[in-house]
Design a protein around this nucleic acid. Structure first.
Lengths: 111, 111
DNA sequence: CAGGTATATACCGCTTGCAGTATATACGTG
DNA sequence: CACGTATATACTGCAAGCGGTATATACCTG
């Protein structure tokens, strides 16, 4: 399935996925939380389902949707050849923060 | 810039990006390596440029394109909430491979 | 500066994608 | 079984995206 990228190109579908990343949701829950029309939600879910990005569990007249991680894992893999562009920077930042934390152990615990 | 996902939805553009991940390339190099028409390459590069995914360096009448990593880094960040779906699995695999490597240190060095 | 090479842009036609409205299907409850 | 709720699908109209062909622009070299 190479439909993944085209599928996650749509902002509403990414929003649905982000919602489902937290926990599974029924269609109407998605509808209300994302303020989308019901047909729109159903149609986007159909696209996500056909791309293998979500799957549904039947609960009476509800369909409860959840993430299927494999396609997103493939996206993660596709990013691999690009990661060296920024991972060095992130590593340096982390080392920097570690140094600061060590040199000043009584850091404020405020979020 | 939230145009990133729409931009990388196009297979030819992803191919261009993967090519540039290895090293910077001129338009005609991309054209020949990916067997695309020259106007098509230029148009895709324009979209990539406007999305901030690549930038061009002028070398006489050539334009040499290279990756701008920031938008892809944002994609990487967007994936974060989904990673726990598969990272546990990968971690387990890595631990498994580490164990094997330790228990049999004279592994063949063949690529 | 004429001709060639490298790249960008304009225009066109076709297909695809999305939202909205209306309708169908399925299930649960009195 | 009639009604309400939850979800899916059909249809329509409109906009955006892509490839192809033709042309423009910029630079280099003799």
């Amino acid at each position: 399935m190479d439909y993944t990228f085209g599928t996650i190109a749509e902002p509403n579908r990414r929003a649905i996925l982000s919602l489902l990343a937290v926990s599974e949701q029924s269609v109407s829950e998605i509808e209300h939380r994302l303020r989308m029309s019901q047909p729109s939600v159903s149609k986007h879910l159909k696209v996500l389902r056909e791309a293998g990005l979500v799957e549904a569990r039947v609960d009476a007249q509800r369909r409860v949707y959840r993430i299927r991680p494999e396609p997103l894992e493939a996206v993660d893999a596709w990013l691999a050849p690009f990661r060296h562009f920024w991972s060095a920077r992130v590593d340096a930042l982390e080392r920097h923060l570690d140094r600061k934390a060590q040199s000043r152990p009584k850091t404020r615990r405020k979020k």
